[in-house]
Computed example of a mutant assay.
Amino acid sequence: MNHLRDGTLRLRRTEGARPRCPFCRGAFLPGERVRRCATCGEAHHWECLALHGGCAVYGCEVAPPREDAMDEWSIDPDDPVPISEQITYRVLFAIAKGVYRPGDRLPTVREVAARLKVNPNTVSKAYRDLDRDGVLISRRGAGVFVHPDAPQVATERRQALVLARCERALGEALDAGLTPEEIQEVIVNALRRAARARGLPLSENTSTPRWAERVLARPRKDSKHEG
C-alpha cells in the first residue's frame, strides 16, 4: 500500500485483502481519499477521523487548528448582517478557499469568541447552523471539524451569497437612475480598486463580468409610482 501526498490510497491488485479504516473497519477502495494521522501517519476515512477527533491506532490527537487560519476570522460590527451570520460566512469562505479542509478542526467557541470579542452563544449558533447544513461536524469532547462534503457546499453557498448581494447592489443602482453603461463603468473601476488593495493581479482590459451583464439586461419593473 502506498500513501500518496494528496490523501489518496493506491492499492495494488496483488495485495490481497484491502486495508481497513481503524475506526469503522470498512475497507479502503482503490483511489479513495483518506486522511492520515498527523502524528503516526496511519490512514483513516476522512469522516471517521473527524468524528472521533483522534487516531484509532495509537490514540493520537488531531492536529490543532493552524494559527495562520485565524486570520480568516473577522467581523464588521457596523454591518447590518447579524454577527452569527457573519461568522457563518467567514467559515464558508475559508472552506471554499481551501484554508480549512475536510477533517480539519476549527477553533473552539471560546477561542473564536475571544478573538472577535463577541458572546460565545453567538459563535455556538453559527457552528450549530453549519453543523445542521452539513458543513461542520461537532464531536462532544473533541471539537468541531470540517465535514467531508463541506468544500462543495461552501463553494455553492459562496457563489449564491455573492451573486445575491451583487444583484441587490445593481438593482439599487438602476433604481437610483444610473444607466447600465454607467453601472458597468462603476463595476470595472471598483473591481480594479479592490484588486489593487488586496495585491491581486488584474488586467487593464478587464471588462464587466458576464453575470453582471445578464443582471443589467433583465427587464425591471418601474419603481416610480404616480402620486
Score class of each variant (00 low, 15 high):
L178K: 13
V81W: 00
G171V: 03
D175V: 13
V135I: 15
L49N: 07
Y58L: 15
V62Y: 01
G141R: 06
R101V: 14
P151V: 13
L130A: 10
L130E: 10
L161W: 02
R139W: 02
P102Q: 04
S74L: 06
L106K: 04
P80W: 02
V146M: 03
P120Y: 05
E72I: 00
A69L: 07
R90T: 13
L178V: 06
I183A: 05
G171E: 06
L163D: 11
A63M: 05
Q86P: 04
I187E: 09
E72C: 12
G53P: 07
T108Y: 00
R158V: 12
I75A: 11
Y127Q: 06
T108V: 00
M70P: 00
Q184I: 03
V91P: 02
R132D: 11
D175S: 15
V153C: 10
A142E: 12
P65A: 08
P77D: 09
P80E: 08
D129P: 01
A114H: 03
G54E: 14
V99W: 00
L106Y: 01
E167H: 03
R193W: 07
S124M: 05
M70I: 01
Y89P: 02
V62L: 07
A114Q: 12
D129E: 14
C60K: 02
A113Y: 01
V144E: 04
D131E: 14
Q159M: 09
L178H: 10
L178A: 12
Y89F: 07
K117W: 03
V109S: 11
V186G: 09
C166D: 07
R140Q: 13
M70E: 13
A126H: 01
G59L: 12
T88K: 15
I83T: 15
C166R: 13
H147Q: 11
Y100D: 02
C60W: 00
S124A: 14
R115L: 15
P180K: 07
C60H: 08
I75F: 07
N121W: 03
I137Q: 04
T179A: 15
V118N: 05
A96R: 09
E185L: 14
F145G: 11
P65I: 06
E85A: 12
V153G: 10
P151R: 11
L92Q: 12
N121C: 09
F145C: 11
A69I: 03
A114D: 14
V109L: 08
N121P: 00
L116A: 09
L191M: 15
P120F: 10
A164H: 02
P64K: 01
G177R: 11
R105E: 06
R128T: 08
V162L: 15
I83E: 07
Q152V: 11
T88W: 04
D71H: 02
L92E: 13
D68P: 00
L170A: 09
I87N: 08
P77H: 11
R139E: 11
E182G: 05
A126I: 03
L106E: 05
V112M: 12
P180V: 09
T179Y: 01
I187C: 13
Q86C: 09
N121T: 09
F93Q: 15
E72F: 04
L161R: 13
A176C: 07
L191R: 12
P65C: 03
C55Y: 00
P148T: 10
R192V: 11
A96I: 10
D104A: 10
V123E: 04
N119T: 04
D129R: 15
L51S: 12
D78W: 06
V162N: 07
V112R: 01
E185A: 15
